[in-house]
Simulated assay, not measured.
Amino acid sequence: MHPSLANIGAYIKTNTLALVPAARAAGTTQGPAIDTGAFRSAVLAVAVGAATGTPTGASATFTFESRGSTSGAEGAPGAWAPVVDRDGQELSVIATAADGAVELDLDFSFLGDDHDQVRVKQVLAFTGGASPTLLTGAVLVLGGSNRLPV
């Protein structure tokens, strides 16, 4: 049996926290900078928990931003830019149901030529409710490394 069938853990890295689990109010949250390193692709796995404050609707939109770690002035990190596909469309996924999960695939060839860092951006919106919050968190599963085991 091929190792990719019997030992998937040697081919992916699953312990990269992209968005710390927390109850969040409406607005924008960015996760930490994650070095893409030797990897060529990733899957964002988002978990959405319960809402508080009895909103009648909620949506959490997740996208990616990238930058070069040394592409700015004097080797400082460059500015964050939205990650878009080959058609110029921003990669995104929207979670609308509490107690659910969504995922978003990312091909690192979509990053800028000198970009070697990525982060997750979440935009949370509510309809109605009294100071509503939504529990969200995400893990970035990295794959396609040029060296094994990961």
Rank of each mutant, 00 (worst) to 15 (best):
N7S: 15
T63W: 02
A18L: 07
R24F: 02
G68W: 02
I12P: 08
G68A: 05
V48N: 07
V20H: 12
L5D: 15
R67V: 02
A38T: 15
Q30R: 11
L17F: 06
P32A: 01
A18W: 10
S4V: 13
G72F: 01
A6L: 14
A38K: 13
L17G: 11
F39D: 10
F62E: 10
A26F: 00
H2D: 15
A58I: 11
D35K: 10
T54H: 03
I8D: 14
E65A: 01
G49K: 03
S69T: 09
D35H: 12
T54E: 10
F39K: 09
T56N: 11
V46T: 11
G31K: 00
P21V: 01
G53I: 08
L5A: 12
T16R: 06
L44Q: 09
A58S: 13
I8S: 14
G27H: 00
A50F: 01
R40G: 13
A58E: 12
E74N: 15
T61H: 01
A23D: 15
A51R: 08
G72Q: 04
G9Q: 15
T29E: 11
A25G: 12
E74F: 09
G9S: 12
A51H: 01
A33D: 15
T52M: 01
S41M: 07
A51G: 04
E74Y: 07
I8M: 11
L5N: 13
T28V: 13
A42H: 07
E65T: 01
V48K: 05
G53T: 08
S4K: 12
V20T: 14
T29K: 03
E65M: 06
A18N: 06
R24E: 03
A18Q: 08
G72V: 09
P32N: 04
G9T: 09
G37P: 11
T14Q: 15
T28H: 01
F62V: 05
V20I: 07
A6N: 14
T63K: 11
P55G: 04
T52Y: 00
A42N: 07
I34C: 05
S66M: 04
G72D: 05
T16C: 06
F64D: 08
P32T: 01
I12G: 02
T16G: 06
A50L: 12
G9H: 08
A23Q: 14
G75C: 04
A10L: 06
T61M: 03
G68P: 06
G53N: 03
T61G: 03
G68Q: 02
T63H: 02
P21C: 02
A26D: 10
P21E: 00
R40S: 13
V48F: 03
R24W: 04
T14A: 08
L44D: 09
F64R: 10
T29R: 06
L17C: 08
Y11K: 09
E74L: 12
